[in-house]
């Protein structure tokens, strides 16, 4: 079962998240605010990266955290880290938003790069907990091992919000090739990030 938490301090934080989630289920607002404090920055960073727009990113993060407050039982601890559940929820909502707002297709090309440039790596003044930064580095390393063609389809879908059909069109390859590359990429990431933790 993937925990995403074997890195330094990760397991402790996963356990701490579980404790906070338990309090959240009981309607504890302080627990909600602590979870917000922990994950608002990566959530907002993700939402901004996908939507490319401050106000839309705020809307996405607002809706995701509100959904968490209203239906905390949607997260099941048996299925992995709370962090991945929440950020996956943010991603879903961000892509939904992009699809609604086609005008965002004009956003800058940097939204399509998995590897951020050095100056935007972590915005100045953003305080990030060390264990989360450690996990970020693990994910980066795992992604860096993917063949370029697999990385491309993954980044276009995940951060670009493109459908597989659109990716095939943009790259000039068959749709089946895009599907195959996507699955191969995700399988490799699963092995790299989860199986070594078992």
């Amino acid at each position: 079962m993937p925990t995403g938490g074997s890195h330094d301090g990760g397991k402790d934080h996963d356990q701490s998240d579980l404790f906070l989630h338990g309090r959240l289920r009981a309607g504890d607002r302080e627990a909600f605010e602590e979870l917000y404090r922990r994950y608002a920055r990566p959530a907002y960073g993700l939402a901004y990266r996908v939507t490319g727009h401050d106000l839309l990113a705020q809307e996405v993060v607002h809706d995701a955290f509100l959904a968490l407050w209203r239906a905390p039982e949607a997260y099941d601890p048996a299925r992995g880290a709370f962090r991945t559940f929440l950020l996956s929820l943010v991603h879903h909502r961000a892509v939904d938003t992009v699809r609604r707002e086609e005008r965002l297709r004009r956003r800058t090309e940097r939204a399509l790069n998995l590897e951020p440039t050095r100056d935007e790596d972590v915005a100045e003044g953003v305080v990030e907990e060390a264990w989360l930064a450690g996990r970020r580095e693990q994910v980066r390393r795992a992604v860096s091992t993917l063949p370029p063609d697999q990385r491309t389809v993954l980044e276009m879908a995940y951060f670009g919000g493109y459908t597989q059909a659109r990716i095939a069109e943009e790259l000039g390859v068959p749709l089946g090739t895009v599907k195959t590359r996507t699955l191969a990429a995700l399988r490799k990431l699963r092995r790299a990030l989860y199986e070594r933790e078992a």
């Binding site: 907002y44 993700l46 990113a57 880290a81 996990r135 994910v139 980066r140 990431l189």
Partner: peptide
């Protein structure tokens, strides 16, 4: 889980 992990590749931002 993986779609949650990939989120960390986006630079965190202060809301």
């Amino acid at each position: 889980g993986l779609t949650g992990e990939l989120a960390l590749l986006a630079p965190p931002r202060e809301p």
